[in-house]
């Protein structure tokens, strides 16, 4: 289903969800939950957005039913730990590649994905200062390395 323009800010979280449907359904579920909450704040009133969000809610309810045996889904506190560990794992992979001077597209994507996953953590409450800093650094690094590679420069 096409994403209405008003909901464009959630497109990257939805894409991350899709990429994790098979790899890690818990990550996929919470990315969609974050997209749902943000989408409702952005525009839950116009017919095209409501239609999209109702479909997204259907999908979330179905996922929760299918994953009901998984404690990371049935208990949000466990889910919080799962998403935080995963976000840090992706961030640390990107950071280690960056520090080793291995600049490649997957490194940019890993930094960017980790920043999206730190966004997702906000469904569980306010982000810690450490996670806010990680998110800011990951977003900046992704943009910086992307620009360097685009301009044929070596990132510092």
């Amino acid at each position: 289903m096409a994403l209405p323009p008003q909901l464009k800010p959630i497109q990257h979280h939805l894409r991350t969800a899709q990429e994790h449907d098979k790899r890690d359904p818990v990550v996929a579920y919470y990315c969609r939950l974050h997209a749902m909450q943000t989408g409702m704040k952005l525009d839950g009133k116009t017919p095209e957005c409501r239609k999209f969000l109702v479909k997204l809610m259907d999908q979330l309810e179905m996922m929760k039913k299918e994953l009901s045996d998984n404690e990371s889904i049935s208990q949000e506190i466990v889910g919080n730990a799962h998403i935080e560990n995963y976000a840090l794992k992706v961030f640390l992979y990107a950071d280690s590649e960056d520090r080793s001077g291995n600049f490649h597209k997957n490194l940019i994507k890993s930094f960017y994905t980790s920043s999206l996953l730190f966004d997702v953590l906000s469904v569980f409450g306010e982000l810690s200062e450490e996670n806010i800093q990680h998110r800011k650094y990951a977003k900046w690094k992704a943009a910086y390395i992307h620009n360097c590679l685009k301009n044929g420069e070596t990132p510092q």
Binding site: L33, M36, Q37, M40, K45, T46, R50, M57, E61, K64
Partner: peptide, 27 residues
């Protein structure tokens, strides 16, 4: 009809909010 449309939209928004709360075991 404008206010009817707005009421319908609000009711549907409430329904989504309720489903979200239920999904998160907040009801």
């Amino acid at each position: 009809t404008g206010s009817v449309g707005t009421s319908v939209a609000s009711a549907e928004q409430d329904e989504l909010s309720q489903r979200l709360a239920k999904l998160r075991d907040q009801v």
